[in-house]
Design a protein around this nucleic acid. Structure first.
Lengths: 349, 349
DNA sequence: CTGAAAGCGCTAACAA
DNA sequence: TTGTTAGCGCTTTCAG
C-alpha cells in the first residue's frame, strides 16, 4: 500500500532516493540529530515526549530498526547468551538426544522471557581444543550455558577460573570450581538400584557409557546400594548412537540375559532401546528382567509396560541455569544447584 | 596458578599492564601495524608467511581473538543464521515438540558444518506482530530459517516479497511466494487414510488442530481418500499442549469410540497420546481402532504396538533448508522443495 | 532538552 | 609485503 508510484514523482521526490537504513537517515528525515534519534528509540526519558513519539512513529512507518551490531559494539554488551552443547567421543546423535533438546527448549523460554537472545553452538571438543574459550572470546555473547559436561570437565574447570558468567548443566563433583546445575545423579542411582532390588532383582546390570561424569555418578550410586544390599552389579558400556546401542544391548542380552534380572539404564533413551531388544528376544519385562531408566522423558509413560524411571525436573533445571547465569552476569559468585531426583514407579520395575 | 604476585614485579613488568584485548594491542606487541595483524589473523595470503605465523602464534599465546562484533559491523555480514520457531495460538509446549527439536538438531549440524552460527529465537506471533521483520531487521543475521508456518502464512508471504535469504519449513501451497521445504502433507494424508482403509477401517477420525496449514493439508489428503473410497472422516480438534490433548482425546474417545474404527493422528505425538488413552479405556489397538501417525519419530517403533506412521525425512529436510538458504544468500531465487513422505507400516494399522 | 563529536574494534582501500 | 586512513552504525559524554 505504500509503494513508489504515487509518492515518487509528485509528492516527495527525496523519499525514494534514500531508504532509511541508519539512525542518521532517520535523523535527517525527522529534522533532528542522530543522538536524539538514538535516545528517542531507546525510550530515554530525557527526550521531549513529543519528539520521542514523533521519531518512534517515523521509525515504525519506515520499518526502521537500529543496527544491533553497531549498538552492541558501542555498548560493549550483546544481550546474547551462548548455549553450547559439547559432543564427546560420540560425535553422532546426542544432538537429537531428547533430554538435551527438551532442556534447550525450556532454556529458550526462560532466556527469551528475560530479554536475551540465544546463540546456539554444537561442538566436538575432540576436534577443537578451544571450543569454549573461542566461544567466550568471540565477543558475541555476554555469558554462556554449557549443556552437558561431556568429557570436558577439566577444560570447563580451567575456563571457570577466569570467566564468571558461565553455568553448566551436569554433575556436581565435590570441590569443583565451575557453577553447575543438575540432578543429584548419585542419589538417583541409589534410588534406581533400591527400586530394582525392592522389586526382587539381585543381579543388576548398568547400561550406559560410564565415562561421562553424570553417568558415572549414576552408576556409583547404584553400586553403593548393590554392595550394601548384597546384590551384584556390572556395567555394560554402550555408545550413544542409537543404532550402535541397540546392537550392543542386543548382543549382550542375547548372551547374558540368564545372568541378570535387573537393568538400570543410564537414560530413558537407553531404557527404551533395552525394552525393545528384550521384546525381540522374547524376554518378559518386568517378570524376567526389571528395568529402571533415568530422566522421565514424556514418552516414558507411553511405553508398554510404562517405564519406571528417575525423574529429573527439566523445567526447574532450565530455570536454575538461567537464574544463576543472570546473577553471575551481575557479578555474583553463585553456588551450584543440585536438584533432587525422584523415583517414578511405573510398570517396568 | 597464574596470578600476579610472581610475574608482576620481577619477570615481565609490561605484561600485567595491558592485557591483549584488541588487534591494536597485539600489533604493538608484535611490532607491526593493526592492518597486518588483521590480515595475518584472517590468514590472508598477502602477508609474509613468517610474520603471519609469528602473529598467529602470538595470538594463540595470549588467547587473543578479534572481536566479532566489530568485525561483523565492519564487514556488513554476520556469519549468523537466525532460526525462529513461531508458536501459534498454542503458546505452551511445542518448543519441546519433538519433531521441531529434532529438526533443529540437524539444522545445527548442517549450519555448523558450513561455518555458520545459529541465533535461536522462539516467538509468539500473536503477541508481537513484527516478530519476523524485527529479527531480520536486527542486523544480527545474514539469513533466516523459519521452523513451521504456524498461523503466520500471510506474514511470511509479505516478508518474502522483500527479503530473499529466508527459507521456511512447512507446507507448500499452490502459488505461494516464500521458499518452503517440507513433506507433501496432502500426499501423506492420503497414504495414511489409504492404509487405515486397507486395514479395514471405514469410519475415520482425524485428530489434530486443522488450523495450521501442514495439518490442514494432511486432513485434506485423508478426506480425498475417504471420499473416493466410501469411508467417512471427521476432524477432532486438539490443542497442542499435551495435557490438554490428552484430556480432549480421552473425552472424545470415551464418548464416541463406538463410532470410529480408524484414527489418523496429525503427528506421532498425538498418536502416542491417543494410544495411551485407548489403553486406559481398554480399547484394543489395532483390533477395535487402528491408528496411523505422522513424522516417524524415533520412539514410534518403540511403542506397543509399534506405531504405523507417515515418515518425514527430517535429516533430508534440514539439509534442504540449509542448501536452499545458502543459495539464496548468493542471490539465487530458489524454488521450494517438497519431500515425499513414506508410509511405514508397523503394528497399529 | 538537543547537538556535536569522539570513539567501540575491526577491515579494506589506497599508498608506499 | 606492510602501514595509514577512513569509516561500518551506533551510543554517550560534554556543551550549549
Amino acid at each position: 500500500m505504500n509503494r513508489k508510484s504515487e509518492l515518487e514523482g509528485s509528492i516527495d521526490p527525496e523519499a525514494k532516493v534514500r531508504p532509511i537504513r541508519t539512525i542518521t537517515d532517520l535523523a535527517r528525515v525527522a529534522g533532528v540529530s542522530p543522538g536524539t534519534v538514538s535516545r528517542a528509540l531507546a525510550g530515554k526519558s530525557l527526550v521531549n515526549t513529543k519528539t520521542r513519539e514523533r521519531i518512534q512513529a517515523l521509525a515504525r512507518e519506515h520499518g526502521f530498526q537500529p543496527n544491533q551490531m553497531a549498538s552492541k559494539l558501542r555498548r560493549q554488551k550483546t544481550g546474547v547468551i551462548g548455549v553450547v552443547i559439547p559432543l564427546g567421543h560420540d560425535r553422532e546423535q546426542q544432538v537429537s538426544d531428547s533430554f538435551f533438546m527438551t532442556l534447550l527448549g525450556h532454556l529458550a523460554d526462560e532466556l527469551t522471557e528475560k530479554g536475551y537472545d540465544i546463540m546456539l553452538r554444537r561442538v566436538i571438543p575432540d576436534r577443537d581444543e578451544d571450543w569454549l574459550d573461542r566461544f567466550i572470546g568471540s565477543g558475541m555473547i555476554d555469558g554462556v550455558i554449557v549443556i552437558g559436561q561431556s568429557n570436558q570437565f577439566a577444560r570447563i574447570e580451567e575456563v571457570a577460573d577466569g570467566y564468571l558468567p558461565m553455568v553448566v548443566w551436569g554433575n556436581h563433583q565435590e570441590g569443583q570450581r565451575h557453577c553447575v546445575v543438575g540432578a543429584d545423579n548419585r542419589l538417583g542411582g541409589r534410588l534406581a538400584a533400591e527400586r530394582l532390588i525392592a522389586a526382587g532383582a539381585t543381579r543388576l546390570a548398568f547400561f550406559g557409557d560410564t565415562a561421562p561424569f553424570e553417568f558415572a555418578a549414576r552408576y556409583a550410586g547404584a553400586c553403593d546400594i548393590a554392595n550394601s544390599m548384597g546384590a551384584t552389579i556390572t556395567a555394560v558400556s554402550t555408545h550413544l548412537s542409537p543404532a550402535q546401542t541397540a546392537q550392543e544391548l542386543s548382543r549382550f542380552l542375547a548372551e547374558h540375559h540368564g545372568e541378570i534380572d535387573g537393568v538400570f539404564a543410564a537414560s530413558d533413551t537407553i531404557a527404551f532401546t533395552c525394552l525393545q531388544e528384550l521384546r525381540k528376544l522374547g524376554i518378559a519385562v518386568p517378570d524376567q528382567i526389571k528395568i529402571v531408566g533415568f530422566d522421565d522423558l514424556p514418552i516414558a509413560e507411553q511405553t508398554l509396560p510404562a517405564l519406571t524411571t528417575i525423574r529429573q525436573d527439566i523445567q526447574a533445571g532450565a530455570h536454575g541455569l538461567v537464574d544463576l547465569l543472570l546473577r553471575r552476569l551481575q557479578g555474583e559468585e553463585t553456588e551450584s544447584l543440585v536438584l533432587p531426583p525422584k523415583l517414578v514407579v511405573r510398570g517396568t520395575a
